[in-house]
Write a protein that binds this DNA or RNA. Structure first.
Lengths: 104, 104
DNA sequence: TTGACATATCGCGGTATTACGATATGATGT
DNA sequence: ACATCATATCGTAATACCGCGATATGTCAA
C-alpha cells in the first residue's frame, strides 16, 4: 500500500467526503437501489451516478475521483450490468489507520 | 485541525520521512547536539540544518517543508539562539490517528 | 442492429505544488 | 558596528493536479 498515493487521494475535500459517505451508504444514498438484479441493501456498493449527484460534480470528475480512490486501494469496484458499484475497502483503511497510529 | 492540509502535508515522501525520523531524533540525527545552551538529549527537537543534511535537500526547501508540517500542526518549533528546533506534536498526531481510525 | 444509458477516457486551460538559487531577516560573537 | 552563521522569504521554471466538456467504450432492451 502506497501511503503517499493514499494521502494524496485523501487530500481532496470531495474525495475525503465520498469515502466518509460510503461508511453509511443507506443513509447517504437513499435514491440508490432498485437497479435490476441488485439487492436493495447496498452491501455491494454505490454506483457512480449516485455519488456524482450527492457530490455535485461532473460525471467525468466523479469517475476520475473514484478511480483515484480505487488505485490507492481505499475503494473496491465491481461492475454489474451498466453500473459500476464502489464500496470501501475496510482492510486497506484499517491498514492505513494502523500506519498512522503506529509507524507514523 | 484541518485534515485536508494535514493529508496534503503527508503526501510528500520527504515530509513524511522527516516526520518519521523525528520519532527517534537521537538515532536519526546523531550529529545534532552540542549547540551552546541546548541539552544533548534532543528533547527540544532538531534544527533545520540537521534535517536538511539528512534529507539531502536545499536549505530553502527544508525550511519550507518544515513550515508546511508546522502549519498543519504536525510539528512544533522553538527558537533558541540562531537555531530553530522542530519536534513532533504528538497530540496532533494522536488526533489524526483517531480520525483515521474512527471517523474516516 | 440500433438506440439509450452508465461509465471511462481524452484533451484542455487554470491553478497549485515542487525544489531551487538568490536574497532578506535575525542572532551571536568580536 | 561588523562579519558570520542559521533560518526565513522571494521569485522562478518545471511539473502535477483540478474539474470540466467532448468523446469513446461497454451494456442492455427492443
Amino acid at each position: 500500500m502506497d501511503m503517499i498515493e493514499t494521502f494524496k487521494a485523501l487530500s481532496n475535500p470531495t474525495r475525503l467526503q465520498i469515502l466518509m459517505w460510503l461508511k453509511d451508504p443507506e443513509a447517504n444514498f437513499p435514491e440508490q437501489g432498485g437497479h435490476p438484479g441488485v439487492p436493495d441493501d447496498l452491501k455491494g456498493g454505490v454506483c457512480v451516478g449516485s455519488i456524482r449527484n450527492k457530490a455535485g460534480i461532473s460525471q467525468s470528475t466523479a469517475s476520475q475521483y473514484l478511480d483515484v480512490l480505487q488505485r490507492c486501494g481505499l475503494l473496491l469496484s465491481e461492475r454489474h450490468g451498466k453500473w459500476t458499484y464502489f464500496r470501501r475497502n475496510e482492510e486497506a483503511i484499517t491498514e492505513l489507520a494502523q500506519f498512522v497510529g503506529g509507524e507514523l
